[in-house]
Structures are given as C-alpha cells and as structure tokens.
Design a protein around this nucleic acid. Structure first.
Lengths: 224, 224
DNA sequence: TTTCAACCTTAAATTAACTTTAATTATAAA
DNA sequence: TTTATAATTAAAGTTAATTTAAGGTTGAAA
C-alpha cells in the first residue's frame, strides 16, 4: 500500500512517516501543496493524506485539482480545530475522510485502514495471473490446492508484476517504488527477491514466469 | 462489550465512562453529535448511548442518520426532563430505550444490560470455531469435556478472532478495539495475550490455531 | 480494613522470520 | 571468448514475535 503524505510541519511529518512505514505502508512525504499535486497526479498512490494549511497551495486546492484531473484516490484531510468549516467544504469537494489535529496516531492508522477497506469493497483483493492468485490482505500466493505466504518485500514485487502483466518493470522502478529513491540498499536485493519469487512460483507449479530482459528489467509472462 | 457514549457534559461523561468500564464494558466517549455519528457508523459497538442535547448535531439527528445508514445497534437515548416530547420521537425513530436525566447510575447499567440481553435473544451467546466454543456471558472457553475461564482481555481478543475466523486482525486493531486509541499501553501486551490464549487453546486440545503473520497480524485457523 | 487471588502490564531474554550483503556461479550479447 | 549482467546461495544483520517472570492493580472475601 502506497501513501502520499502532504504535511508541512517537518516534525509531525517525520513522525507520521515512521509510524506509517511501521504499519507496512510505503510512504512518500512532501512538504507543500504544489508538490502534493505533482505527486498525486502520478496516480501511484492508494491513499493521499493532505494537511489543509500548507505553503504554495492549500490542501483544499490540491484536493480540488486532483478530483478535477480525475484522480479518485481516497483522500484524508488533516484539519486544525479552527478549520472546522473547511472540513465540511472538503467533504463536499470529494475528500473521503477528515481528522482534526491533534489526533492520536492510532486513529490515523485506523482511518486509513477504513478508507482502503471501503475502497476494497469495490476492487477485489485478489490479483490473478495465469493459474495463480495473490491475496492483498494476507500476502498469500495460491494455486488451486496450495497456498503459501510471501514476505513483505516479496509481496510488493510480485504485486507490481502481477498488476500489470506483460509490462516491463525495470530494476530501478522496483527500487524506487519499494525501497524509495533515497534508499542506500544495494540494487542487488532486487535480483535476490526475483530469485526467491521464482522459486516460490515453481513450488506452486505456476504457469507464469518472471522473465528477465537483459539491461531493461523484468516482465511477467503467462503461458496458458 | 463495546459501548459508544455521546454526552457533551464533560463531568457526567467522565463519571459514566468510569462506571461503565468498571462494569467490564469498553467505552469510547465523544462529546458532540458529529463525532458520535462518525464513530457509530464504524459499526463497532454493541450499544450506543446518545444524549439528545449536544453540539453540532443533536442526538435525534444522529439516531436518524445511523438508522438510515443501516446501523441497527441498540441505542439508548438520554433526555432531560423538559425533552419528554423528544423521547416519543426518539422511540419512533428507532431508539431502543430512553432514560431521563437525572438518573441513577445503577439504572443506566441495568438498561444497558437489558438492551444487550434483548439483542442476544437473536444472536446466540456462544461462538463456535473448530472443536471449541466461547460463551459470551460467562467468558468460558470449552471443548467437549472441559471448560476454562478467560480473563476480560483474553476474552475480548479471542472473541475478535473467533467472530471472523480466517480473517486477519492486526495488532493495532486489537489495541484500538480493546484498549482504545488513546491508550498508553505498550503494544507488547497484545503479544502477551496471544501467548496466553495459545496456551489455553492447547490445554483444551483445540483444533484451532492462532497463526501469526509477521508484520500483518493474526488469523484464527481451523484444522478440521 | 486487611488480605488474597485474579487479572493486567511491563520488561527482558529468547526464538523465529524477514532483509540485506557479499561471494560465487551462470548466461546472454558483443 | 570475453565481459557485463543476472542468478543463486549462504551467512550476517535486523526486526518482529514469543515466552517467562515479576511487579502492580483491583475487587471480593475474611
């Protein structure tokens, strides 16, 4: 699960990133409204958290632009107590939830869960490719008979591959999206996990293969 | 048993929370109608107590919205004497009981018990999973021969696991639901109780297992 | 009131699972 | 064949989960 966090108070932002990561989310944090809009428009997120008071462009403006451009990602607004009015406006403009500061960290996590649950009522939690399927809730990879558990990193990689099969994904894309572009981790980990995944796909007799395209990246191939 | 209490008089609210907790209920207290609606919509409560006179949205409006959204949780309205009329309206709108202020604390508890008993005539008081069953009245966990008593926290955790077996429940969800958002308790406590529960399940030769999913939470697995 | 037992919470030590590094082996393209 | 890229594996590092023990609370019984 990818989250975009737009919050200009550095300290709060850092704390939130730490907590969200701890809850298994991949987080990109930006410090102003303009960046929030840029990142949000990429459509790469499952949830967007917008503080209302931010430099360059406030949260409500960002919300408006995003919806205007057809981004339907669930959005949670953060409002200071004094901005109660804004919260009404925000909900009318297409925010999915709001939370007024100060809030308990646990509550934020709960709201995010609730929002993504609401979303997942519509979009199924199971990604299929060939004769296997991947459960996004419990990280289980299964064929007809058996199922087996993937680790966090394994899951994220396979998720990327399975959500757009036949599409090429470069090693750098894996790194950026899963480890973050500022990660100091060696690029080598990607190969390692590809290897693990192939082994697990083999145990399940999957008819999908992770094919390497030398110099370019990987593709998920389905052989029906 | 989870109770949502919506009452704007801080002092009364605090007193009620203390008493309800003392009676083994998990209580979330909110101070206005808008929050009451938010929390109530989560569907996480066994009983909702609504004061009628509240800021932002009054109790009757909350009641109406909740019923409108399909929340059938038993609701107890608190009315000032002068609002006798409201009480009629409330009952017509789907409240299950009312109590006029000032009231004796003992009476409140009695009414709550009565409401939840009424409810439990329909929903059985015994949750089953595999070869064991959990009695919601006396907190007893039993297999065919033996039965054994669970503590309050143990009970609530196992209840969550048994009411939706095969469904993943995160450590944070346990914390939120049993200890509350604002609890200062260490997350570790969840692990401790999981451990206690597993031990008790083992003594009963249960064919259900609490499986940990690292980083995600726990699932109750049944091996028939 | 005092005491006891049951329950709750914390802390710390251990175990297990996952992540990363690094060294080695294999493979495709020039 | 040579070289760079990719694959595999083992081992080291890290973090989450488990268990145990001990200290605190609280309520009921004496």
């Amino acid at each position: 699960m990818r989250i975009l966090l737009a919050e200009d108070e550095k300290e709060l932002s850092n704390a939130l990133v730490a907590i969200l990561k701890h809850n298994n989310y991949s987080v990109d944090a930006v410090l102003n409204g303009a960046d929030a809009l840029d990142y949000g428009l990429s459509g790469n997120y499952d949830v967007i958290i917008l503080d209302i008071m931010m430099p360059k462009m406030n949260g409500l403006q960002v919300l408006e632009k995003l919806r205007e451009k057809g981004i339907h990602t669930p959005i949670l607004m953060l409002t200071a107590k004094s901005e109660i009015e804004d919260r009404v406006i925000g909900l009318n403009m297409g925010a999915d939830d709001y939370l007024s500061k100060p809030f308990a960290m646990g509550e934020l996590v709960a709201r995010i869960r609730a929002m993504s649950r609401r979303k997942s009522e519509f979009t199924p939690n199971l990604i299929k490719a060939g004769n296997i399927s991947l459960n996004k809730e419990n990280y289980e990879l299964s064929n007809m008979d058996t199922s087996l558990r993937l680790g966090n990193k394994e899951f994220q990689m396979l998720e990327m591959l399975m959500t757009n099969p036949k599409r090429l994904i470069s090693t750098e894309q894996f790194m950026e999206r899963i480890w973050g572009y500022d990660a100091e981790t060696e690029i080598n980990v990607v190969w390692v996990y590809i290897s693990y995944l192939r082994k697990k796909l083999a145990t399940l007799d999957a008819n999908v293969k992770i094919k390497a395209m030398r110099g370019l990246g990987y593709v998920l191939e389905v052989n029906e």
